[in-house]
Simulated scan of single mutants.
Amino acid sequence: MRKYVLLGTAAFAIAVYLTNASWLAEKRPGKPTLIAHRGVYQTYNRENLGRDDCTAIRVYQPQHQYLENTLASMQAAFDAGADIVELDVHSTTDGEFAVFHDWTLDCRTEGSGVTREHAMSYLKTLDIGYGYTADGGQTFPFRGKGVGLMPTLEEVYRNFPGKNFLINIKGGHVKEAKKLDRYLRERELLSGPLMAYGNEKTRVTLRELRPDAWLFSRDSVKQCTYRYLILGWSGYVPEACRNGAVIAPNTWHWALWGWPDRFIQRMEDAGSMVMVLDFRARSPGGMHGIYKPEQIDFLPADYRGALWVEKIETVGPYANTKFTSEATESL
C-alpha cells in the first residue's frame, strides 16, 4: 500500500511540475510594457509616511522640472519609453474630469478644500507647484511655475492621440464611474478599450458598462494573488485574475506557479496584464513601483509582462537597452 501511495504522490508531483514548467510554455514575441506612474514626477521620501500626509513637502531635491499629472510630464514619460501613462482623475462640479492626484487642494496648491467640490474653471487658476519644498519650507522651487497646468482628461486625450492611459478614479462612488463612462463616450475620447482602476464598486460598475475594459481594484488584485497561490498549481486562473491586473512583486516570483513564461501566458490568455512591482517589507504599503534600474535585473531577457515604474526617466532607457540587448544575445 505504501508503495502505491509513494508512486501516486510522485506521479502527482511530476504532473504539477509539467503543468507549471515555464520552459515548456509557448514562446511568444513581445517586450515589457512600461507603465509610468504619474508620468515623470518629483519623487519623495516615504519614510514614516502616513496615508493622508502631504507628499509635496517631502520631495527630494529636484533633478528635473516636471510636475506629476501634467501634459509636459506625460510627454516626457512617453519620450523616456513609457507605453502607458498612469494618471489620476476627479469629477468636478462643472462636468469635467480634473487630472490631479490629491483628494484635497491644500498640499500642492494655494487653494483649499476637496478637489471634486470645485469647478474646473476654478482649478485652472491654481498653481499646482505652489506647495513643493525639499528643504522644510525654506524654498519653493516650483512656486509660480504651475499656474494653469492642471489638465482636464479631455485635454490629455486630445494632446496624445493614439497613446495609452491608465486612469485612477479617485472618487469611490458608482455615479463617478457612470459619469466617466458618459464623459468618454460623448466626447469620443477612446480609440480602444478603457484601462482604469479604483475601488471595487467602480470596477464592478465599469465592467457592466464596458465588458471589454481592462480594470482592477485593490480588492481584485488581492483576491487574484491569494487564490492563484492556492489553486494556480492546477493551471486554474481565478475569475479575479481575468481582464485586469495581476501583481507580481519582485521578491514573490518564486511563488507564482509557472513563473515566468507559463504564468504570463495564462494571464494573457485570461485578458490580464502581469505587473512587476517592488516589494519592500518595511515601506509604507509594502509594494511600490520600480525606482531603480537594478530592481528589474532579476527579470529574464524575454520577459513581456508590464513594469509599474516610478522613475520612468531612468528606468525606461535602461529597460529598453536591457531587454533589447539581452534578447538579441540569447538568439
Rank of each mutant, 00 (worst) to 15 (best):
A15D: 02
Y17A: 15
Y17Q: 06
Y17C: 14
L18H: 07
L18T: 13
T19A: 07
T19S: 07
N20G: 06
A21N: 07
W23F: 15
W23M: 12
W23G: 09
L24F: 13
A25W: 09
E26F: 00
E26G: 00
K27A: 06
K27P: 00
K27V: 10
P29H: 03
P29E: 07
P29L: 02
P29Q: 06
G30Y: 08
K31C: 02
P32G: 03
P32T: 09
P32K: 05
T33S: 02
T33P: 00
L34T: 01
L34F: 01
L34S: 01
L34P: 03
I35Y: 05
I35M: 12
H37M: 04
R38P: 01
Y41S: 04
Y41V: 00
Q42P: 11
Q42G: 12
Y44D: 13
Y44T: 13
N45H: 07
R46I: 04
E47T: 08
E47N: 05
N48S: 15
N48D: 15
L49M: 11
L49C: 10
L49H: 08
G50K: 14
R51W: 13
R51Q: 12
D52G: 10
D53C: 05
D53G: 06
D53H: 09
D53F: 02
C54R: 04
C54I: 03
T55Y: 13
T55S: 15
T55G: 06
A56C: 12
A56E: 11
I57Y: 03
I57A: 12
I57P: 01
V59S: 09
Y60Q: 05
Q61W: 00
Q61S: 05
Q63I: 03
Q63S: 06
Q65K: 09
Y66H: 05
L67N: 06
E68W: 07
N69T: 06
T70S: 11
T70A: 09
L71R: 03
L71G: 01
L71F: 01
A72S: 14
A72C: 04
S73H: 07
M74V: 09
M74F: 15
M74Q: 05
A76K: 15
D79A: 15
D79R: 15
D79F: 10
A80C: 11
G81R: 01
G81D: 03
G81I: 02
G81H: 03
G81N: 03
A82G: 11
I84A: 07
E86R: 03
E86C: 04
L87I: 14
D88N: 08
D88G: 07
V89W: 05
H90K: 05
S91A: 14
S91H: 13
T93P: 01
D94N: 13
G95W: 08
G95H: 12
G95P: 12
E96N: 14
F97M: 06
F97Y: 14
V99I: 14
V99K: 06
V99Y: 07
F100D: 02
H101K: 10
H101S: 11
D102M: 01
D102T: 00
D102H: 01
D102W: 00
W103P: 03
T104Y: 06
T104K: 13
L105I: 05
L105H: 06
D106I: 08
D106W: 06
C107D: 02
R108C: 11
R108L: 09
R108W: 10
